[in-house]
Simulated scan of single mutants.
Amino acid sequence: MFSIGCAIGMIELRQLRYLIAAAHSGSFSRAARTLNIKQATLSRHILEVEQRLGITLFDRKTRGATLTPNGQRYLRTARRIVKEFEELNAWVRETRDGENGRLAIGFYTSFSAGNLRATLTEFSDRFPNIQVRGFERDRQMLLAGIENGLLDIVIMIGEVRYHHLRSRSFWSERILVAMPESHPLASRERIHWTDLTGERFLLTERDPGPETRNMLLSKLWMPGYTPEIDMDDIGRDTVLSAIALGGRVSIVAESALGIQVPGVVFREVHESNGHIRIGFSGYWREDNDNAVLHRFLEFVADRYSLPPLSGQQQSSHQTGKEMP
């Protein structure tokens, strides 16, 4: 039992609760009924507190009990102690259960729209006591952040496996082509890969530019034809601004829809079986014991109706190299 030390003895926390209940009820009998204990038990504990303090806290009357002036002063402190102790217990419980604390998330996709933005917004609304911090970096810096413990989890495109990291697929987004509104293809609601043959593409050298380039090569390359792809060291917003000037198009995930650039339109890219989607996965250290991380993983699984995380679902990352 938690106790409060003083020069003349130890006052138990439950005794302070008895005192507060008696003061609130104005009657030992009513307070005992509220606390679901015997009146004799409550009276005995309050008398014990008075004896240890050497002061009278209550005036006992036939029809009830009222606080003495000393009792009123003592009650103010007792209420503060009980309130702070209960707040401390709540904090410990919420921290242990992953409802209080911090979560550091790394990513390199756009945060202007899409599932990442929607997920983090809803997570923060559901758990307002959790501080979520986001870090936008390239893939290698994100992986380094996981390794050195600066990040709890990173969310990246694809399903690459890395040594000593666990991972799971999270969600997918549509692939879009961004083009000038004056482009001949802008009048179409959907675009097929074959429609993009002969186009000049502009991508960022930064992530996910290299992945997008590989996708374009796999979809458009054919004997005698290699798509023309410009890779510039610019951000995704600058890419779209350059697209508005005309002459080039770009490939983006639907999370980029939140970036409003005058003169740029987006159209879905389709294959024979429907529009194309690209997957996003989460990566974290196996030995990360942050309860908030596990709360976030449970939240994502529930939001996207994902299967339970298997104990064998482990990926790897070692010195930045992919597994063979």
Rank of each mutant, 00 (worst) to 15 (best):
M1I: 04
M1R: 06
M1Q: 05
F2W: 11
S3Y: 09
G5F: 15
C6L: 13
G9I: 12
G9E: 04
R14N: 10
Y18A: 14
A21K: 03
S25M: 10
F28M: 07
N36W: 01
H45A: 15
Q51M: 14
R52W: 09
T62M: 10
T66Q: 02
T68C: 04
Q72P: 00
Q72K: 01
Q72E: 04
Y74W: 08
A78S: 07
R79H: 09
F85P: 04
E86C: 07
L88T: 08
N89W: 01
W91P: 01
T95G: 08
D97I: 10
R102S: 12
L103A: 10
I105M: 00
F107H: 09
Y108E: 08
F111W: 14
F111T: 13
S112I: 03
A113E: 12
L116T: 11
R117S: 06
D125I: 07
F127V: 15
P128D: 09
Q131C: 14
Q131P: 09
V132F: 04
D138N: 09
D138G: 04
I146L: 12
E147A: 14
E147I: 15
V154C: 07
I157T: 06
I157K: 01
G158W: 12
R161I: 15
H163D: 10
L165I: 13
L165E: 05
S167G: 13
S169C: 15
W171P: 09
S172K: 06
E173T: 15
E173C: 12
L176H: 02
L176E: 02
V177Q: 00
E181K: 09
E181F: 09
S182A: 06
H183E: 09
P184M: 03
W193F: 02
T197D: 01
L202P: 03
E205K: 12
E205Q: 13
G209D: 03
T212W: 02
T212R: 02
N214E: 15
L220V: 14
W221Q: 14
G224Q: 07
I229G: 07
D232V: 09
D232E: 14
L240P: 00
S241T: 08
A242S: 08
A244W: 04
S250W: 01
V252A: 01
L257F: 02
R267I: 08
V269Y: 00
N273E: 05
N273H: 04
G279H: 11
W284K: 01
E286Y: 05
E298W: 07
E298A: 13
V300I: 13
A301E: 14
R303G: 03
S305C: 10
L306I: 14
P307H: 05
Q312Y: 10
S315L: 14
H317K: 14
Q318S: 08
K321A: 03
E322P: 11
P324Q: 12
